[in-house]
């Protein structure tokens, strides 16, 4: 019997360094989102016109904005929306995209129709497409989520499709077919698991981009009710007076960079571990 040897801690850190750094940042963000009411120092929506444009201090960690709202608390609460969108959008994009991709790769007739639509979506400018879908649906988190899923869909679909096309040629699928397995069985039990690590990588590497796009749309005040605290809107709120009070956008921006950096780092680390092409 093989006994599992324990990896020395140093090697473990060396191999998983990126995932550890990224994972720590993500963990802090998740804790922040879950316990936002306990971490925020002020009510994020409380107007305080006697304390407008306060510089960062021990009272207001990142200062206050045009309406005297505490920027730190708004960013803490904003984490909820960013994470919800980051995880939600990529979850649905991967699930729906993989479903479409498998159908496309498996059935020629579906491929002819669905891939055309996906290509049509793909050749539209992403930012504008998301803006149009978001304005058609109106403001709301779930609607913004749909808009962002629509823009992410073609990529996932295309990736899964090309995987399926190469898998279909493999012997083990041919054997299954010869043994009389149904299409559904082959798709669910053989093709799906073989694609799964690509889908997991896609899920993790997609989150950073989604958080940035969601913030960009919120900055343009498309898709989200601007009174709900979120990262993009906080920067948009500060924009009017930022030449005089740059702290209103400086710190929220750095906050976002650290968060997105964490997700990219984690995703890249994961890709390095999971992607068979990189081994």
């Amino acid at each position: 019997m093989k006994t599992k040897r324990r990896m020395p801690l140093k090697n473990f850190i060396k191999r998983n360094g990126r995932m550890l750094v990224g994972g720590t940042i993500i963990a802090v963000l998740i804790i922040m989102a879950v316990f936002a009411p306990y971490i925020a120092t002020h009510d994020p929506d409380a107007y305080d016109y006697t304390n407008r444009f306060d510089l960062p201090s021990s009272e207001h960690l990142l200062g206050t904005d045009t309406h005297g709202r505490d920027i730190f608390s708004r960013m803490v609460y904003g984490t909820r929306i960013s994470l919800l969108l980051g995880f939600g959008v990529n979850f649905f994009a991967v699930v729906v995209g993989a479903f479409c991709g498998i159908l496309c790769g498996y059935f020629k007739k579906v491929d002819a129709v669905l891939m055309r639509i996906m290509e049509g979506l793909h050749s539209l400018p992403t930012t504008l497409l998301a803006m149009v879908v978001a304005s058609v649906l109106g403001p709301g988190i779930e609607k913004l989520m749909i808009a962002l899923v629509v823009t992410a869909l073609p990529g996932v679909c295309r990736m899964t499709r090309s995987q399926v096309l190469s898998l279909r040629q493999k012997e083990f699928i041919e054997v299954e077919k010869a043994m009389g397995a149904s299409h559904l069985r082959i798709m669910l039990l053989h093709i799906m698991p073989s694609c799964s690590h690509y889908l997991i990588i896609r899920f993790c590497t997609g989150i950073s981009g989604t958080i940035l796009s969601a913030a960009t749309l919120a900055y343009l005040s498309v898709g989200l009710d601007p009174t709900i605290p979120n990262w993009g809107a906080t920067i948009a709120d500060g924009q009017g007076m930022f030449l005089v009070y740059p702290h209103m956008i400086l710190w929220p921006g750095i906050w976002m960079i650290v968060a997105v950096f964490g997700f990219i780092f984690f995703g890249e680390g994961l890709r390095e571990r999971l992607d068979p092409r990189l081994k």
């Binding site: 950073s208 940035l212 960009t216 993009g232 920067i235 956008i249 960079i257 890249e268």
Partner: peptide, 22 residues
């Protein structure tokens, strides 16, 4: 390159405006 990937375009634009224009 990962760091630059994390920077929101609109924020970078605003900061550049502040530093180099203002």
């Amino acid at each position: 390159s990962i760091l630059f990937d994390s920077v929101p375009t609109f924020w970078l634009g605003l900061m550049l405006l502040y530093i180099f224009s203002f």
